[in-house]
Design a protein around this nucleic acid. Sequence first.
DNA 1: TGCCAGGCCCTCTTTAGGGCCTT
Length: 213
Amino acid sequence: MQNCADSLIVLDFETTGLSPDMGDRAIEIGAVRLEKGEIVERFQALMNPGKRVSGFIENYTGITNKMLSKAAPCDEVMEQFTHFMGNSNLVAHNASFDKRFLDAELRQIARSYDGSFACSLLVARRLYQHAPNHKLGSLISYKNIPSLGGFHRALFDSEMTAKLWIAMLEDISQQTAQAEVPFAFIQKLSKTPKKAVGRLLSSITSSEKVAPL
DNA sequence: TGCCAGGCCCTCTTTAGGGCCTT
């Protein structure tokens, strides 16, 4: 397992539905490792959830039951992913959703993780309050980030989330005149009332600096 | 057969309701 204190994992799950508590399982995981604002490593795998997925999910993701029948089981893929993830901090778009599935799938193999989560959706809602909405695809367009439009596959969505994250880091960096934006500061930003965002951005101090992301 | 969630956030709020976002 790598020591990943200075890197960040951006991840995305495709799943059979919305709730692991209702029996839904992951069917694909995609993730990229960010170091110093660059994607340096990728992870992608389909996983067989042991049950058929609905027609809605097949249409939504393009992942078919035939594709999943040839995939490795969830336990095997998640075991591999724990090695990729290491103890890095984690980012996802609407992180509460991906965290629920990550926790549920890791529980199946009696694993856990040490990193903490940040949510690109919550940060975007504060930074881009005038965006038409805060869906991942809309924010990619809003920030003029090049995209070939392969949304709803795990690796593609994780890469797009990573590029959005980098763009947000650059915007925060410009607004705060700080070259380095600490992960803890972004977590704090994501929980700050919208009206107080400007005040928080102007209050960042060098004492809050940690390793650059 | 048909249906199912949960966290965040705003407001017509706080003893609540509903929209957004994820698959």
